[in-house]
Amino acid sequence: MSLAGHFSYWVTIFLMVAGLFILISRGNLIKKLVGLGIFQTSVYLLYIAPGKLIGGTAPILADNFTVYSNPLPHVLILTAIVVGVATLALGLALTVRIRETYGSIEEDEILAADLVDDAPAAEEKR
């Protein structure tokens, strides 16, 4: 086992952890979605990197090549990219709606606004 042999995994893990950090530490909803995107791209790397063979070529069959990289992860990740952009679009639409209702896209301010809204209702119940 060599250090160089696992370098690609470590790059992947760094990107994944950076995405996770942005996702949980930032209160801004758009920033959170960008973090989610970084997390997603790290998953692309996680799938694609093990499929690569040094000396191989892209999996398009031709007579003068014999070694090809693994095509299966490429297919799965093509699907993942498209689903990812669909998720992003839906998340951004939700963000825009939240902005219209609360006038803010900061998590703290939204929670504070919710507390203010709930307080009179709780009073009435009592």
């Binding site: 758009i30 995107g37 499929g51 892209a58 999996p59 398009i60 951004l92």
Partner: peptide
């Protein structure tokens, strides 16, 4: 990493469409 199809999609969708949406 030899994933030319994925790279093309990533450049078009990830860098193009996502940026426009954001």
């Amino acid at each position: 990493l030899d994933a030319v199809d994925v790279a093309m999609t990533e450049a078009a969708v990830g860098a193009g469409v996502s940026t426009v949406l954001l």
